[in-house]
Design a protein around this nucleic acid. Structure first.
Lengths: 166, 166
DNA sequence: ACGTTATAGTTACAAATGAAACTAATTGCA
DNA sequence: TGCAATTAGTTTCATTTGTAACTATAACGT
């Protein structure tokens, strides 16, 4: 053991992680960068959060969903969905009715105002995605798709919590 | 326009996003799944957060950093680092001294207790990463690396906030 | 030397998030 | 029927996080 250890590139006996090559860390940075870039676009303009936008996005695709179904399709938990919906209904972007035969369930739809926002934000989001993907060539994009599919599959039998983290 | 619109796969005129094919969304899910899987390991056992772990990881690699340098290397903002350090110092996992010539700066190092935890957690984290990567073959892993490098480069000239989101 | 500006880090407050408890309606089944 | 167990959704409370303001020290320009 060296008597005097120099400051900067240290501590080899402990095999420290190199964060910059560590997959979870890199994914986290990338995911945040990309999501933020998109959110910056609409957050200021429409005062809408990522959570809210995701709810609107699924309601645009599937009309008349219940809150639970929204939660499933957004990979958010039901409390987060409940809160997002409360705000969206309050500002008149989503219409909430009660299911005819099951009075526990709500029946959710975008209002005209909701659609109007959707029709601005969705193309913006797509454009941003395109910008990001433009850094890759066609072959790389194909591999990325394939890799994401494989990584998302088979959540390794065990424990734990899942889900989107806005 | 159809007089009666069926409920489920709706609203084509509005070109809604398909979240499940939307890159930012997929990255977010994947990143959270992977980070959570690892965090589950150490969070319960050592009562340590992702933020704290990242700080410890860079201090393991570079001794004597200042808080600002830790922030740079973890891609976290300085407030988050300050808070993580406060806890780490409080529980005796990090030692904080003051820089000789610049009394604003702190000089941070893992304590023995900090190293002990590091030496358990780092191999666990690496093992989890290996589990995730085991879903890919060697070729896919190579592409993934290359793709992540390219995506992380050139944060598209513009605006915005960056950073890791624990 | 001295005031201005910049930098390191912390604190205070508001908003977002997560976990658990809770209400209400529905289902299953004895 | 009638009651225990489920399911949908909300509320409450504690914790976390983000933003801005703040303190202290150092650097810069004259």
């Amino acid at each position: 053991m060296p008597a005097k250890r120099k400051s900067t590139p240290a501590a080899a006996e402990h095999a420290p992680l190199q964060l910059e090559h560590f997959l979870p860390y890199r994914l986290s940075i990338l995911s945040n960068t990309v999501s933020q870039a998109i959110a910056d676009d609409y957050q200021s303009r429409f005062n809408i959060s990522v959570t809210e936008w995701r709810v609107m996005a699924v309601l645009a695709r599937y009309e008349g969903l219940s809150a639970r179904e929204v939660a499933e399709r957004t990979a958010m938990d039901k409390v987060a969905v409940s809160r997002a919906l409360a705000r969206l209904v309050a500002v008149g972007r989503v219409d909430r009715a009660t299911h005819r035969t099951d009075k526990r369930r709500s029946v959710l739809n975008l209002t005209d105002a909701g659609w109007a926002i959707h029709d601005v934000v969705a193309p913006m989001a797509r454009a941003r995605e395109r910008e990001v993907l433009a850094k890759l060539d066609a072959e790389e994009r194909a591999w990325l798709n394939r890799i994401l599919d494989k990584l998302q599959k088979a959540p390794e039998t065990g424990s734990g919590k899942r889900g989107a983290g806005n």
